[in-house]
Design a protein around this nucleic acid. Structure first.
Lengths: 119, 119
DNA sequence: AAACTTGTCAACCAGCTGGTTGAACAAATG
DNA sequence: CATTTGTTCAACCAGCTGGTTGACAAGTTT
């Protein structure tokens, strides 16, 4: 498992079951059994999903008797948000720039023929 | 390819090469050849990567002579941002709530013994 | 100590992924 | 029309992924 942190986070959230678990954990900590309840898969499969989320840093597990409460970690989200915002903003700016060009274009200029008004 | 949109986007960005391409495209449109230049893989591999990005809605391709300029689409980013913000905020609020509890706790209260300060 | 609860580890399997090569298609150019 | 340029399609392969089952470790309960 040598992937960079960002790849691990995106990859972890690429699975709908895992995103669902994150949604559940946003409401509060939960045990593996509690998390497994809604899904029609083995407990082992859920355990694996949690390992993926943990390796991505999205989740942490403590020990409490024989239970392993799972806790959502908010910090890692920032890693994604930072990356996304960076490029979204760039793409949007370029878009807006084109928008300005179109807005500034006089109404009587046809896109196909270019400016051709009488002198 | 039956995955939901959100899974497709996260999955597409889980690959560092693909994230790199998005970064490149944030600077402006590019052809497949231009995008392939920095990487030591076949053009076909790059073409596949672009297909993944396109299927995720992160990118669109037009036609211009025999070239296929690739364009970054900003809208899809919002899908992710919305999802992330929703759960990040929830997790942070729960965190902050605990923070408030700790902050409101009188200094002379030991966590293990409970309140025992003089009246 | 025995039994039950909670969860993980290990081995296995089918299907997806990212890479390859070779052929083919599309459009401009000689 | 033949060639070159730009890109995609098809078949194949190794490795990862998400699922399974069986064994077992750790802790609690009786």
């Amino acid at each position: 498992m040598a992937a960079d942190p960002l790849s691990r986070v995106f990859s972890a959230l690429a699975d709908p079951t895992r995103r669902d678990m994150v949604a559940r954990l946003a409401l509060g900590d939960a045990t593996v059994n509690e998390l497994a309840a809604p899904y029609d898969v083995s407990l082992q499969a859920v355990s694996k999903h949690l390992k993926v989320l943990e390796d991505a840093g999205l989740v942490s597990r403590s020990r409490e008797a024989q239970r392993r409460p799972v806790h959502l970690e908010a910090q890692v989200f920032d890693l994604m948000t930072k990356w996304i915002e960076r490029y979204r903003r760039a793409a949007e700016q370029r878009y807006r720039r084109l928008d300005d060009v179109l807005a500034a274009m006089p109404d009587d200029v046809s896109p196909t023929t270019g400016q051709e008004g009488p002198s």
